[in-house]
Design a protein around this nucleic acid. Structure first.
Length: 321
DNA sequence: CGTAAACGTGACTGTAGTAG
DNA sequence: CTACTACAGTCACGTTTACG
Protein backbone atom coordinates (compact mmCIF):
# COMPACT_ATOMS: atom_id res chain seq x y z
CA UNK A 1 0.00 0.00 0.00
CA UNK A 2 2.88 2.25 0.86
CA UNK A 3 4.43 1.59 -2.55
CA UNK A 4 1.10 2.09 -4.33
CA UNK A 5 0.55 5.36 -2.47
CA UNK A 6 4.03 6.54 -3.40
CA UNK A 7 3.64 5.55 -7.06
CA UNK A 8 0.25 7.26 -7.30
CA UNK A 9 1.44 10.31 -5.40
CA UNK A 10 -1.24 10.00 -2.70
CA UNK A 11 -1.44 8.89 0.94
CA UNK A 12 -2.02 5.35 2.18
CA UNK A 13 -5.46 6.40 3.38
CA UNK A 14 -6.48 7.36 -0.13
CA UNK A 15 -5.33 4.02 -1.49
CA UNK A 16 -7.47 2.30 1.14
CA UNK A 17 -10.49 4.36 0.12
CA UNK A 18 -10.03 3.39 -3.51
CA UNK A 19 -9.65 -0.30 -2.69
CA UNK A 20 -12.73 -0.31 -0.47
CA UNK A 21 -14.75 2.09 -2.59
CA UNK A 22 -15.37 4.11 0.58
CA UNK A 23 -15.26 7.84 1.18
CA UNK A 24 -14.79 10.44 -1.52
CA UNK A 25 -11.97 10.10 -4.01
CA UNK A 26 -11.93 12.15 -7.20
CA UNK A 27 -12.13 10.16 -10.43
CA UNK A 28 -8.69 11.44 -11.47
CA UNK A 29 -6.99 10.24 -8.26
CA UNK A 30 -8.90 6.96 -8.38
CA UNK A 31 -7.56 6.31 -11.88
CA UNK A 32 -4.00 7.00 -10.72
CA UNK A 33 -4.33 4.68 -7.76
CA UNK A 34 -5.86 1.86 -9.81
CA UNK A 35 -3.07 2.22 -12.36
CA UNK A 36 -0.42 2.00 -9.63
CA UNK A 37 -2.16 -1.04 -8.14
CA UNK A 38 -2.10 -2.77 -11.47
CA UNK A 39 1.49 -1.80 -12.31
CA UNK A 40 2.80 -2.96 -8.94
CA UNK A 41 0.54 -6.02 -8.91
CA UNK A 42 -0.60 -5.11 -5.44
CA UNK A 43 -2.74 -7.61 -3.50
CA UNK A 44 -4.37 -6.61 -0.19
CA UNK A 45 -3.12 -8.37 2.95
CA UNK A 46 -6.04 -10.22 4.48
CA UNK A 47 -4.29 -10.84 7.78
CA UNK A 48 -3.66 -7.13 8.30
CA UNK A 49 -7.23 -6.38 7.30
CA UNK A 50 -8.54 -8.89 9.85
CA UNK A 51 -6.21 -7.40 12.45
CA UNK A 52 -7.70 -3.98 11.94
CA UNK A 53 -11.32 -5.06 11.55
CA UNK A 54 -11.34 -7.85 14.14
CA UNK A 55 -13.18 -9.83 11.49
CA UNK A 56 -11.88 -12.67 9.36
CA UNK A 57 -14.94 -13.47 7.23
CA UNK A 58 -14.31 -17.08 8.10
CA UNK A 59 -16.81 -19.48 9.65
CA UNK A 60 -15.52 -22.57 11.44
CA UNK A 61 -17.41 -25.80 10.87
CA UNK A 62 -16.80 -28.76 13.19
CA UNK A 63 -18.27 -32.08 12.10
CA UNK A 64 -17.59 -35.66 13.23
CA UNK A 65 -16.29 -36.42 9.73
CA UNK A 66 -17.57 -36.82 6.20
CA UNK A 67 -18.19 -40.54 6.32
CA UNK A 68 -21.75 -40.44 5.07
CA UNK A 69 -23.93 -38.58 2.61
CA UNK A 70 -25.81 -36.87 5.41
CA UNK A 71 -22.70 -35.10 6.75
CA UNK A 72 -21.43 -34.33 3.26
CA UNK A 73 -24.72 -32.65 2.43
CA UNK A 74 -24.52 -30.56 5.61
CA UNK A 75 -21.01 -29.32 4.82
CA UNK A 76 -21.79 -28.78 1.16
CA UNK A 77 -24.82 -26.64 1.90
CA UNK A 78 -23.08 -24.62 4.61
CA UNK A 79 -20.26 -23.85 2.17
CA UNK A 80 -22.67 -22.94 -0.60
CA UNK A 81 -24.70 -20.50 1.47
CA UNK A 82 -21.71 -19.06 3.35
CA UNK A 83 -19.88 -18.45 0.10
CA UNK A 84 -22.86 -16.60 -1.34
CA UNK A 85 -22.79 -14.35 1.73
CA UNK A 86 -19.08 -13.58 1.34
CA UNK A 87 -17.72 -16.02 3.92
CA UNK A 88 -15.15 -18.75 3.61
CA UNK A 89 -15.29 -21.81 5.81
CA UNK A 90 -12.68 -23.79 7.72
CA UNK A 91 -13.75 -27.37 8.21
CA UNK A 92 -12.51 -29.43 11.18
CA UNK A 93 -13.11 -33.14 11.51
CA UNK A 94 -13.34 -34.64 15.00
CA UNK A 95 -13.83 -38.32 14.25
CA UNK A 96 -16.37 -38.19 17.05
CA UNK A 97 -13.62 -37.76 19.66
CA UNK A 98 -14.12 -35.33 22.51
CA UNK A 99 -10.42 -34.44 22.60
CA UNK A 100 -10.51 -33.46 18.94
CA UNK A 101 -13.66 -31.43 19.48
CA UNK A 102 -11.87 -29.45 22.19
CA UNK A 103 -8.78 -28.94 20.02
CA UNK A 104 -10.83 -27.88 17.01
CA UNK A 105 -12.74 -25.32 19.06
CA UNK A 106 -9.55 -23.93 20.59
CA UNK A 107 -7.88 -23.72 17.20
CA UNK A 108 -10.83 -21.96 15.56
CA UNK A 109 -11.01 -19.48 18.44
CA UNK A 110 -7.28 -18.83 18.05
CA UNK A 111 -7.83 -18.24 14.33
CA UNK A 112 -10.45 -15.64 15.28
CA UNK A 113 -13.18 -17.08 13.07
CA UNK A 114 -16.31 -14.95 13.01
CA UNK A 115 -18.56 -17.80 14.12
CA UNK A 116 -18.63 -21.55 14.67
CA UNK A 117 -21.07 -24.25 13.57
CA UNK A 118 -20.51 -27.26 15.77
CA UNK A 119 -21.95 -30.76 15.38
CA UNK A 120 -21.01 -32.43 18.70
CA UNK A 121 -21.05 -36.20 19.02
CA UNK A 122 -21.61 -36.12 22.76
CA UNK A 123 -23.01 -33.65 25.25
CA UNK A 124 -19.95 -33.79 27.46
CA UNK A 125 -17.82 -30.92 26.15
CA UNK A 126 -16.10 -29.01 28.91
CA UNK A 127 -12.95 -26.96 29.65
CA UNK A 128 -13.07 -24.77 26.55
CA UNK A 129 -13.48 -21.09 27.19
CA UNK A 130 -15.44 -19.70 24.28
CA UNK A 131 -15.32 -15.90 24.11
CA UNK A 132 -18.72 -14.23 23.81
CA UNK A 133 -17.43 -12.41 20.73
CA UNK A 134 -17.51 -15.69 18.79
CA UNK A 135 -21.06 -16.95 18.36
CA UNK A 136 -21.60 -20.70 18.26
CA UNK A 137 -24.56 -22.62 16.88
CA UNK A 138 -24.91 -26.32 17.60
CA UNK A 139 -26.21 -28.82 15.11
CA UNK A 140 -28.44 -31.71 16.18
CA UNK A 141 -27.14 -32.01 19.74
CA UNK A 142 -27.09 -29.76 22.82
CA UNK A 143 -24.22 -29.52 25.29
CA UNK A 144 -24.65 -29.99 29.04
CA UNK A 145 -22.21 -27.28 30.08
CA UNK A 146 -22.84 -24.61 27.44
CA UNK A 147 -25.91 -22.67 26.46
CA UNK A 148 -25.81 -22.27 22.69
CA UNK A 149 -28.74 -22.18 20.30
CA UNK A 150 -29.20 -25.60 18.74
CA UNK A 151 -30.74 -26.59 15.42
CA UNK A 152 -32.11 -30.09 15.42
CA UNK A 153 -34.65 -32.37 13.86
CA UNK A 154 -38.07 -32.61 15.41
CA UNK A 155 -37.54 -36.26 16.38
CA UNK A 156 -40.42 -36.73 18.77
CA UNK A 157 -43.03 -35.61 16.28
CA UNK A 158 -41.42 -37.74 13.56
CA UNK A 159 -41.71 -40.79 15.82
CA UNK A 160 -45.42 -40.20 16.16
CA UNK A 161 -45.84 -39.87 12.42
CA UNK A 162 -43.86 -43.03 11.82
CA UNK A 163 -45.83 -45.17 14.22
CA UNK A 164 -49.34 -43.90 13.70
CA UNK A 165 -50.03 -45.30 10.21
CA UNK A 166 -48.85 -48.80 11.11
CA UNK A 167 -51.66 -51.32 11.05
CA UNK A 168 -50.20 -53.65 13.69
CA UNK A 169 -48.75 -51.68 16.56
CA UNK A 170 -48.91 -54.30 19.29
CA UNK A 171 -45.82 -56.43 18.70
CA UNK A 172 -43.24 -54.09 17.24
CA UNK A 173 -39.51 -54.45 17.76
CA UNK A 174 -37.57 -51.20 18.18
CA UNK A 175 -33.89 -51.15 17.29
CA UNK A 176 -32.03 -48.12 18.60
CA UNK A 177 -28.47 -46.88 19.11
CA UNK A 178 -26.67 -46.06 22.34
CA UNK A 179 -28.74 -44.35 25.02
CA UNK A 180 -25.69 -42.21 25.80
CA UNK A 181 -26.54 -40.35 22.63
CA UNK A 182 -29.11 -37.61 23.16
CA UNK A 183 -30.49 -37.97 19.65
CA UNK A 184 -31.14 -41.65 20.19
CA UNK A 185 -32.67 -40.89 23.58
CA UNK A 186 -35.04 -38.35 22.10
CA UNK A 187 -36.17 -40.86 19.50
CA UNK A 188 -36.76 -43.54 22.13
CA UNK A 189 -38.74 -41.02 24.17
CA UNK A 190 -40.64 -40.12 21.01
CA UNK A 191 -41.65 -43.70 20.36
CA UNK A 192 -42.69 -44.20 23.99
CA UNK A 193 -44.83 -41.08 23.82
CA UNK A 194 -46.35 -42.11 20.50
CA UNK A 195 -47.26 -45.53 21.89
CA UNK A 196 -48.69 -43.96 25.01
CA UNK A 197 -50.75 -41.56 22.90
CA UNK A 198 -52.13 -44.51 20.96
CA UNK A 199 -53.03 -46.24 24.20
CA UNK A 200 -50.55 -49.04 23.69
CA UNK A 201 -48.86 -50.43 26.78
CA UNK A 202 -45.14 -49.78 26.80
CA UNK A 203 -43.00 -52.86 26.95
CA UNK A 204 -39.43 -51.82 27.44
CA UNK A 205 -38.18 -55.27 26.42
CA UNK A 206 -39.28 -54.56 22.85
CA UNK A 207 -36.59 -51.84 22.73
CA UNK A 208 -33.25 -53.31 21.67
CA UNK A 209 -30.04 -51.33 21.91
CA UNK A 210 -27.50 -51.92 19.15
CA UNK A 211 -24.07 -50.32 19.09
CA UNK A 212 -23.84 -48.90 15.58
CA UNK A 213 -20.05 -48.80 15.86
CA UNK A 214 -20.02 -52.57 15.39
CA UNK A 215 -19.51 -53.74 11.85
CA UNK A 216 -22.53 -54.24 9.66
CA UNK A 217 -22.42 -58.04 9.71
CA UNK A 218 -22.51 -58.05 13.49
CA UNK A 219 -25.46 -55.66 13.50
CA UNK A 220 -27.32 -57.71 10.87
CA UNK A 221 -26.72 -60.92 12.82
CA UNK A 222 -28.00 -59.36 16.00
CA UNK A 223 -31.14 -58.05 14.30
CA UNK A 224 -31.75 -61.40 12.60
CA UNK A 225 -31.34 -63.30 15.84
CA UNK A 226 -33.61 -60.91 17.75
CA UNK A 227 -36.38 -61.01 15.17
CA UNK A 228 -36.19 -64.79 14.86
CA UNK A 229 -36.30 -65.38 18.57
CA UNK A 230 -39.22 -63.05 19.20
CA UNK A 231 -42.65 -64.60 18.67
CA UNK A 232 -45.26 -62.81 16.54
CA UNK A 233 -43.24 -59.77 15.46
CA UNK A 234 -45.57 -57.44 13.58
CA UNK A 235 -42.91 -55.04 12.46
CA UNK A 236 -39.54 -53.42 12.97
CA UNK A 237 -38.79 -49.81 13.87
CA UNK A 238 -35.25 -48.41 13.54
CA UNK A 239 -34.01 -45.14 14.98
CA UNK A 240 -31.17 -44.48 12.57
CA UNK A 241 -30.18 -45.12 8.94
CA UNK A 242 -27.70 -47.92 9.74
CA UNK A 243 -30.20 -49.90 11.76
CA UNK A 244 -32.95 -49.23 9.24
CA UNK A 245 -31.00 -50.47 6.24
CA UNK A 246 -29.81 -53.55 8.13
CA UNK A 247 -33.37 -54.20 9.32
CA UNK A 248 -34.64 -54.04 5.75
CA UNK A 249 -31.91 -56.43 4.55
CA UNK A 250 -32.54 -58.91 7.34
CA UNK A 251 -36.31 -58.77 6.85
CA UNK A 252 -35.84 -59.55 3.17
CA UNK A 253 -33.56 -62.46 4.00
CA UNK A 254 -36.13 -63.84 6.43
CA UNK A 255 -38.88 -63.43 3.83
CA UNK A 256 -40.79 -61.09 6.11
CA UNK A 257 -41.02 -58.22 3.66
CA UNK A 258 -43.43 -60.21 1.51
CA UNK A 259 -45.75 -60.96 4.40
CA UNK A 260 -48.73 -58.62 4.46
CA UNK A 261 -48.78 -58.39 8.26
CA UNK A 262 -45.16 -57.30 8.64
CA UNK A 263 -44.18 -53.63 8.51
CA UNK A 264 -40.91 -51.71 8.65
CA UNK A 265 -40.35 -48.08 9.46
CA UNK A 266 -37.60 -45.83 10.78
CA UNK A 267 -35.24 -42.95 10.33
CA UNK A 268 -33.09 -42.99 7.26
CA UNK A 269 -31.83 -41.41 4.13
CA UNK A 270 -32.39 -44.31 1.80
CA UNK A 271 -32.80 -43.67 -1.90
CA UNK A 272 -36.21 -44.64 -3.28
CA UNK A 273 -34.78 -47.36 -5.55
CA UNK A 274 -33.65 -49.26 -2.47
CA UNK A 275 -37.19 -49.45 -1.25
CA UNK A 276 -38.68 -52.44 -2.95
CA UNK A 277 -41.86 -52.51 -0.92
CA UNK A 278 -44.04 -49.48 -0.46
CA UNK A 279 -44.91 -50.51 3.06
CA UNK A 280 -41.52 -49.38 4.34
CA UNK A 281 -42.09 -45.99 5.86
CA UNK A 282 -39.12 -43.71 6.28
CA UNK A 283 -38.64 -40.42 8.10
CA UNK A 284 -35.98 -38.72 6.02
CA UNK A 285 -33.63 -36.34 7.73
CA UNK A 286 -33.10 -32.98 6.06
CA UNK A 287 -29.38 -32.17 6.05
CA UNK A 288 -29.71 -29.27 3.60
CA UNK A 289 -32.43 -27.64 5.62
CA UNK A 290 -30.53 -28.29 8.86
CA UNK A 291 -27.46 -26.56 7.39
CA UNK A 292 -29.48 -23.66 6.06
CA UNK A 293 -31.24 -22.96 9.35
CA UNK A 294 -28.06 -23.39 11.40
CA UNK A 295 -26.04 -21.02 9.23
CA UNK A 296 -28.77 -18.42 9.10
CA UNK A 297 -29.07 -18.53 12.90
CA UNK A 298 -25.29 -18.08 13.16
CA UNK A 299 -25.23 -15.18 10.70
CA UNK A 300 -28.05 -13.55 12.67
CA UNK A 301 -25.95 -13.66 15.80
CA UNK A 302 -22.79 -12.50 14.05
CA UNK A 303 -24.58 -9.44 12.69
CA UNK A 304 -26.27 -8.49 15.92
CA UNK A 305 -24.38 -5.88 17.92
CA UNK A 306 -26.23 -6.80 21.09
CA UNK A 307 -26.28 -10.54 21.47
CA UNK A 308 -29.85 -11.71 21.73
CA UNK A 309 -30.00 -15.21 23.11
CA UNK A 310 -31.54 -17.00 20.18
CA UNK A 311 -33.53 -20.09 20.85
CA UNK A 312 -33.38 -23.64 19.57
CA UNK A 313 -34.94 -24.26 16.18
CA UNK A 314 -36.40 -27.47 14.79
CA UNK A 315 -36.31 -28.98 11.34
CA UNK A 316 -39.07 -31.39 10.37
CA UNK A 317 -38.51 -34.69 8.57
CA UNK A 318 -40.08 -35.54 5.26
CA UNK A 319 -41.79 -38.89 4.88
CA UNK A 320 -41.44 -41.51 2.26
CA UNK A 321 -44.70 -43.49 1.98
C1' DC B 1 -7.18 14.44 0.51
C1' DG B 2 -3.78 13.63 4.36
C1' DT B 3 -2.74 12.28 9.20
C1' DA B 4 -2.50 9.48 12.99
C1' DA B 5 -4.31 6.15 16.05
C1' DA B 6 -5.63 1.61 16.54
C1' DC B 7 -6.06 -3.48 15.92
C1' DG B 8 -3.06 -8.31 18.36
C1' DT B 9 1.12 -10.35 18.72
C1' DG B 10 6.03 -11.30 18.55
C1' DA B 11 10.54 -9.39 18.57
C1' DC B 12 13.43 -6.37 20.39
C1' DT B 13 15.45 -3.01 23.88
C1' DG B 14 16.33 -1.32 28.32
C1' DT B 15 16.47 -1.76 33.24
C1' DA B 16 16.78 -3.86 37.72
C1' DG B 17 18.06 -7.52 40.42
C1' DT B 18 20.75 -11.77 41.58
C1' DA B 19 24.52 -15.12 41.70
C1' DG B 20 29.19 -16.25 41.35
C1' DC C 1 32.72 -6.79 37.79
C1' DT C 2 30.51 -9.97 34.64
C1' DA C 3 26.93 -12.93 33.17
C1' DC C 4 22.60 -13.97 33.45
C1' DT C 5 17.34 -13.79 34.27
C1' DA C 6 12.98 -11.49 34.66
C1' DC C 7 10.18 -8.16 33.51
C1' DA C 8 8.22 -3.85 31.37
C1' DG C 9 7.95 -1.00 27.63
C1' DT C 10 8.22 -0.02 22.68
C1' DC C 11 7.91 -0.94 17.93
C1' DA C 12 6.62 -3.12 13.63
C1' DC C 13 3.59 -5.51 10.58
C1' DG C 14 -0.65 -3.66 6.74
C1' DT C 15 -4.84 -1.85 7.00
C1' DT C 16 -9.03 1.03 8.17
C1' DT C 17 -11.20 5.12 9.65
C1' DA C 18 -12.37 9.35 12.45
C1' DC C 19 -11.07 13.67 12.12
C1' DG C 20 -8.82 17.93 10.44
Amino acid sequence: MKDVAKAAGVSIGTVSKVINKSGNVSPKIRERVLLAISLLNYKPNGIARSLKNSKTNIIGVILPGLYDIYLMKILNNIEKIASAKGYKIIYCSTNGELAKEIKSLQWLIEKRVDGILFYPTSEELTDVEIPPSIPVVLIERELKNYKFPTIMHEHVEACRQLIEPLTQKQSLLFFHGSQNDSVERSKITGFFKALEHLGIEKESDCFKEVNVKHDRTFIADYIKQTISSTPKVSGVVATNPILLSESIKVSEELGLVDQTDFEICGFGDIDPFEIRRNKIRIAKEQPNELARVALSSLLDQMNKSCKVVSKNLYVTHTFQN
